[in-house]
Design a binder for these strands. Structure first.
Lengths: 167, 167
DNA sequence: ATTTTAAGTCAGCCTTGTTGACATTCCAAG
DNA sequence: CTTGGAATGTCAACAAGGCTGACTTAAAAT
């Protein structure tokens, strides 16, 4: 792979293998920080990161179907079902049979579910808020632009779908 | 949590809970993309993401000790050992007894190890290169600033240590 | 001489992902 | 109305990759 001088000089320095490698390491270390705080809370309860993800996306898209959630989370229905079952048993998630299509189950957070989701997300957001504030608005815009460009097209579609109207 | 108008008006719009939530979702989806390509390669071999991480950091810091690698990866020695053992058995990693301190083992990639590391990292970098190019140099600078601010202080220290001289 | 440190190993457990097989329910097409 | 296919749920088995705890070996440090 190319090192150093390109025809454009310094303009593409951020595309050298070394810079890309640093970007990868930054993703690795930052993702650890990103999940650390909610993970600490979950450690006490009998839940894991998978439960947090389910709670997060049901909160974001209330009434979403199981299939929908599968696509977003990128796991098998068996994997999701294990998580979802405990959340329903524990009264954090409610599953309602669809009105128009009774095969579908629409998922909602109960009050208890909303409460736990808020606790986990607050922990995560506290760190992100500090990071965003430290880095500044322009850095945050760049951050999001790069992350979005890094997604699989299908996931980018899902991402935009979730934002719909919000952003 | 606060919504909308702050004393500073639009300046802090990127700190609303909604914006932070979107940032979290971006991290989630982007990390999936980030790992997808090397994961596909590893699927064929009898290795996993943990092997990739070990190869990556031994490549980055050749001669690193086991303890060092433990700190960087943030796993237990038992967990790392399982991965390291197979890599050594398969001739991808070499373990050399320390000269000054004979308790330590210094880790190096063999030629075969370098080859696999390159294959995996190339796959990962291809996506990152495209993302960086699409987003532009200023976005990349912001991307890295935010990720760095998101790390645990100890991990930020490790991150800078790895960069040492490079950046 | 004793304690501490680095590394390795064994055993067992948990979470969370995977396949494969199969039942149920229900929409929709023939 | 019957049948095919889709959406959901469930059972079983398995694997990767985390974890803890207990223990050994060798070498350094005190």
């Amino acid at each position: 792979m190319s090192e150093g001088r390109s025809p454009q000089g310094e303009t593409l320095l951020f595309l050298t293998d070394e810079q890309l490698r640093q970007g990868a390491e930054a993703m690795f270390f930052a993702y650890r920080g990103f999940t650390a705080d909610p993970d600490r809370i979950l450690d006490g309860l009998s839940y894991g990161r998978a439960h947090h993800r389910a709670l997060h996306f049901i909160h974001t898209a209330p009434g979403t179907t199981v299939n929908n959630l599968l696509t977003i989370l990128g796991v098998t229905k068996q994997s999701l079902n294990r998580v979802l079952r405990t959340l329903i048993e524990d009264g954090l998630v409610e599953s309602q049979v669809g009105r128009t299509d009774k095969r579908e189950r629409h998922l909602y957070l109960t009050e208890a579910g909303e409460a736990l989701e808020r606790e986990l997300s607050d922990a995560q957001r506290t760190r992100m808020r500090a990071a965003f504030r430290d880095a500044g608005p322009e850095a945050v815009a760049g951050f999001r632009r790069v992350l979005e460009a890094m997604m699989d097209p299908e996931m980018r579609r899902q991402y935009h779908k979730l934002r719909g109207g919000r952003g």
